Simulated scan of single mutants.
Amino acid sequence: MRKGDTQEIRRLNRRAILQSLRQAPATRADLARKTGLAKSAVSRLVEELLEEGLLEEGEVRPGELGRPGVLLRLKPQARYALGAELGVEGTVLLAVDWRGEVLWSQEWPHPKEEGVEARLEALKEAVRPRAEGALGLGITLPGVVAGPRLLFAPNLGWRDLDLSLKGFPIPVAFENDAKASALSEVFFHGEENLAYVVLSTGLGVGVVAEGRLLRGTHGAAGEVGHWTGGGRTPCRCGRRGCLETELGLQNLLAHHRALGGEAEDLDTLLALAERGEEAAMKALAHLGEALGRFLANLAVAYDPARVVIGGRAAELFPYLEAPLRAGLRKAAFLPVHQNLPVYPSAYGHLAPAVGGASLFLARFFELGGLWAESPRRNGGPYEEVALGFRHGFGA
């Protein structure tokens, strides 16, 4: 047996127990049966987890041969992480517990000309009084993120920035907003083949194939908003005809005004749609149909099992769904893609920040709750190895 293998086995066994309890409460006997571990091993590890405050005991349930068993479940809010989105319109900060419940959230706008340093400083001040007990802070951005660098965020006007931070009271990690959101779907819902579409000011996609996030050589996989076509509309990336100039929600507002509407922001347009205003309904139907055609192309490119719509578009989904599905059925390449499952994110516009928090929550489970145990064989602590700083989360 190599040095460190005993600790590795303990970690894997704890992970098996925690993952089983994520699905449903269970007795010790249930856990032994589901995980394949010896009952003595399950009892020992359960006692560890109870002492650490990760589990709690519930009601007594009749067991096999009349032997009662005590149900075990994950203790609510026993562990949580912070997530933040540095978006185009503003900043979102929230906390998510390891069961996926948003504990609190706050949002604030910012001047368009405000730079990354000022926004990170404001975020640091907001995090500081809420940092105690958090596993870490995952920060998402609408751009190409490669390790500790932001290569390009066109809609923010940021390029080639070092994201290494000092002075944050908890560990910090950065990720693209769509990729983080896709990873959160894998973590909270278990889907191993999906495309997560973030549609707000811009358009981005996070693709998970067989449980692994697609990144590409430079982290640019999924930047589909910058696919170019025959259009000539200038894009904030400096080119013309990028797809997000047609599908971005700023174009939705422009189309609404072209139809005689007067909405200056999405909240106003949504309120008009709720009242049945004709121009708002037409603009949303047009966007929905275009989004359906886009998903037909996405299905050919990545063949996902389902698509999740996030960003502000998730809040518009009730108005987008029917024309979206009609456009998808009409444009689908394969018959099976005509009925591709498409759903709005359960977290709405908070999804990118939830994705940021899930980066740390997923790693906590991956480590079996041994967040900062003794160094592993390579000499680095668990978090350095498991968080994958060299290649990024989910590499």
Rank of each mutant, 00 (worst) to 15 (best):
A331K: 11
E315R: 14
P344T: 00
L340K: 13
L316D: 04
L324E: 05
A326H: 09
P323D: 03
L316C: 03
Y347I: 11
L324S: 00
P341N: 08
S345N: 09
A322C: 00
G310T: 12
G348T: 13
A332R: 12
Y319E: 01
L328W: 05
L334S: 14
V336K: 15
P341R: 09
R325W: 02
L334V: 01
A331P: 04
A346D: 07
A332Y: 09
A313N: 05
A326M: 00
A331Y: 05
N339D: 15
G311N: 12
P323G: 12
G348R: 08
S345T: 12
A331H: 04
P323M: 06
G327Y: 10
A351I: 05
Y347K: 11
A331M: 12
G311K: 09
L324N: 02
G310K: 08
S345V: 14
E321C: 00
P335S: 03
V342W: 06
F317V: 01
P335L: 06
G348E: 12
A331F: 02
A331E: 11
H349Q: 14
L328N: 04
F317S: 03
G310V: 13
P341K: 12
A322T: 02
K330R: 15
Y347P: 05
R325P: 04
H337E: 07
E321F: 04
N339C: 08
P323N: 08
I309P: 03
P344H: 01
L320G: 09
G311D: 05
A322F: 02
L334C: 01
G327S: 09
L324D: 07
P341G: 05
I309S: 02
A314I: 07
E315P: 04
V342A: 08
Q338K: 15
H349E: 15
H349W: 07
E321R: 14
V336Y: 02
A351E: 15
R329F: 01
K330L: 13
H337P: 02
R312T: 00
A331W: 04
P318Q: 07
A313C: 07
L316N: 10
L320F: 01
P341H: 02
G327D: 03
A326Y: 01
F333E: 06
F317P: 02
R312P: 03
A322M: 01
R329W: 01
G310Q: 10
H337Y: 14
R325N: 07
G310N: 13
A326K: 15
P341L: 08
I309E: 03
P335C: 10
F333H: 12
Y319D: 02
F317G: 09
V342K: 10
P344G: 11
P344S: 02
L328P: 07
L334M: 14
R312N: 04
A346P: 15
V336R: 15
G311L: 10
G327L: 05
L324F: 01
G310I: 11
A314H: 08
E315I: 06
R325T: 03
A332P: 09
L340Y: 11
A332Q: 05
N339K: 14
L320T: 10
S345R: 15
E315S: 13
K330N: 08
L350C: 10
V308L: 10
V336W: 10
V336H: 06
F333S: 05
G311Y: 08
Y319V: 02
A322W: 00
S345G: 11
L316Y: 03
P335V: 11
A326T: 14
Y347C: 10
A351L: 05
V336N: 00
G311E: 09
A326E: 14
